[in-house]
Design a protein around this nucleic acid. Sequence first.
DNA 1: TAAGGGAACTAACAAGGGTAAAGTCGCGTT
DNA 2: AACGCGACTTTACCCTTGTTAGTTCCCTTA
Lengths: 244, 244
Amino acid sequence: MARTDSSLERAADLLRRKLASLGPLADTVVRDIKTLARDRVEIGAGRPIVKERERCPSLYLIESGWVFRSRGLASGRRQIVNYALPGDILCADSVLFKASSFDLTARTAVSVIRIEPPANEIFERYPGLSAALAWTAAQEESILAERVVSLGRRDSLEKLAHALCELEARLSAIGQMKGRTIELPLNQEDFADILGISVIHVNRTFRRLSEDKTAEYRKGSIELIDRDRLAEISSFDPAYLHLE
Amino acid sequence: MARTDSSLERAADLLRRKLASLGPLADTVVRDIKTLARDRVEIGAGRPIVKERERCPSLYLIESGWVFRSRGLASGRRQIVNYALPGDILCADSVLFKASSFDLTARTAVSVIRIEPPANEIFERYPGLSAALAWTAAQEESILAERVVSLGRRDSLEKLAHALCELEARLSAIGQMKGRTIELPLNQEDFADILGISVIHVNRTFRRLSEDKTAEYRKGSIELIDRDRLAEISSFDPAYLHLE
DNA sequence: TAAGGGAACTAACAAGGGTAAAGTCGCGTT
DNA sequence: AACGCGACTTTACCCTTGTTAGTTCCCTTA
């Protein structure tokens, strides 16, 4: 991986920043991960990374690209449970469980660093990796808990506004916001499957935001015209993301 | 805690069984937890355990009782994110994060063992506890992911059937099923806040199950008349619970 | 035994969101 | 320039679910 160390460095840096609250342990995390890093894997846009019921063989640290964790139901319904961005770790549960209960799919072209923890003794020998696993799982849990609140008790406008605020916060944290516009590979069907509503209703709801001059959907990007309004609509509080 | 060791023993046993997939580490977990166990705390039914934005001071292992993790929204809406049962660990994220983003409430009278991990060096000194933290967070994440699917893409009948199957599985795992009837402290409003639908609709949906002779709601208990049918309605697959 | 309260149940109506189908726009290909 | 495709947009209609309001049941307490 000689030639490509700089992009591993970048991903490790995003991870280190996320784990800042661990204090000095954050450096141990990065050291463990570099020790256990194996090779780089490139996945084409749209390709599956892990399928439901498959055992995920290793951990992956995302260098670039967007990954969906989703479940397909009978009758063609699909729910996107979460999305992962550069600096996020995939398959954190693979170390602990026998099989994944969800599909992992590359939404864009994705580049990941494969990390191979030893089959046993992770917790004895790699406290940094242990901390990273616990932290990652806890943060994802927190995000999912917030998702549960959105899906269960917010109407479509609140859901969408909340999702946009979250996107803004997560992309800012990894330096991927361009001013007040989000550049993202999600089409309206992806939003439907994230928000748990129909594509048509996603469209209606974006139109409402657009009419109120709050946000403007465009293919490949979204302009957040009035961020405060979005946060107000959805009573967004970024605490649950646990970003610094 | 001399006089009460037997009930700690019982809770530790439930935990050990849950963590069986960790292999020999499961015993280390129990040892660490016993080392760090402080006192027993009793919480009255309906009382808050931790409130949103509060820092949760320690870890808790549930000995008995039901705990809700929920969020109250403006306008009186409430979403129950998850519920915790004997053998479950509360506040696993308190070690990692500054504050809880949700309320923890005792639904029944609850008895917990308080566990006090050291402020630092958990991951260096207590591999068992580290593993328990990671495992707990990962399992909860998995449950929440399934909840997201339910809330996002299942209709009310499927949601309810799925919730009943999950209850059955989780209660069986801790030996709290009485034949095919679930004894539980949830009223129809609790179900509404778990499923993300209105109380009235919970009622309608239970009636449908009752008319089809699939399940029968009674105050304080639910009889699962046709468990296969429930699993079929909701395409329930217990893998996501990661029980044994 | 009567009164009171909480939970469960029912009915009537309204609304948010889903379904179906058709039309438009942008863009790369030939 | 014409074609074709995918994504987005819009309209019309329907159905699931929510709202409001009122009734019944049962358990508790006086």
